[in-house]
Design a protein around this nucleic acid. Sequence first.
DNA 1: ACAGAGTGATTGAATTTTCAACAAGAATCC
DNA 2: GGATTCTTGTTGAAAATTCAATCACTCTGT
Lengths: 153, 153
Amino acid sequence: MSEPRWLDAAQQRDWRAYIEGSVRLADLLDRDLKAKHGLATAEYEILVRLSEAPDRRLRMAELAEYASQSRSRLSHTVARLECKGFVARGTCGADKRGVNAELTEKGFAFLEQAARDHVATVREFFVDVIDPEDLEAIGRAFSAVAEQVGKVR
Amino acid sequence: MSEPRWLDAAQQRDWRAYIEGSVRLADLLDRDLKAKHGLATAEYEILVRLSEAPDRRLRMAELAEYASQSRSRLSHTVARLECKGFVARGTCGADKRGVNAELTEKGFAFLEQAARDHVATVREFFVDVIDPEDLEAIGRAFSAVAEQVGKVR
DNA sequence: ACAGAGTGATTGAATTTTCAACAAGAATCC
DNA sequence: GGATTCTTGTTGAAAATTCAATCACTCTGT
């Protein structure tokens, strides 16, 4: 157990390819979104999650979970989005500690535009350059990874 | 062309699984490395690249390329690593503008320790939870992604 | 040789993210 | 009921990253 099992050559190759590809892709998507719509990926992600929630509204803790962000980070980020008028915060009836974040009309309209471009870019640099079977493999693999990571947290 | 081609249900599922899984994994690896060795992934990555270079030394621009970081970011990061005594900067003979970053003995010794733990964690949360064939698919896919991203940059 | 354009690396300020408290409300236990 | 503990969300300072400007050097063309 204390003896480290190194990765074999193929595993190492695949792992590195993943690291490099994913970092570059994330970088590109971020720049693309920022250049075209002035939004960071993390902010975009928040709008997406809200747009899919019932009443386009979620409690901060849930939103943090869905967007894979820390609560602290979410607080700051939502504050910024609130300044831009894309999100509004309101108190949550049942639990007086709770805060609801809600996507505004303006935020929704904005998201519709941004999502088009974003999807096109995701296609161009991810979906369309990957063999469909490999894409399925990625779905399977990263679901397993997310689950495994979830166990420990 | 201006008509957006949305992702079909399966593509969307796979893309989202990837986003969630990769963000959580990156997060976990970062925390793990920071907790056990006080280093961020980006810093670790730099040490790795240096350790593999001839004479454990690389010019800043090359290092930036290998580590998928901007030059500015690299300057700051290397400055930090230099403070810790893991990296030393020296001028580059041929081109007087150039700067070589070199892994120190201390940096190398440190890396040996950190790499063990890191590989173990990568195994536990990535390699070992993924079907070997799916891992190969990931390697293929992200190589293609990296190439595609490289075309435009 | 030399002006102009391009490259390599750094810097400091602005922005973003993390980290460590903190405050207020809910839940638990006796 | 009241003390204790846990959860939710925010805050400000510290750390990291991005952005724009800058400086020094090299290359190119004439």
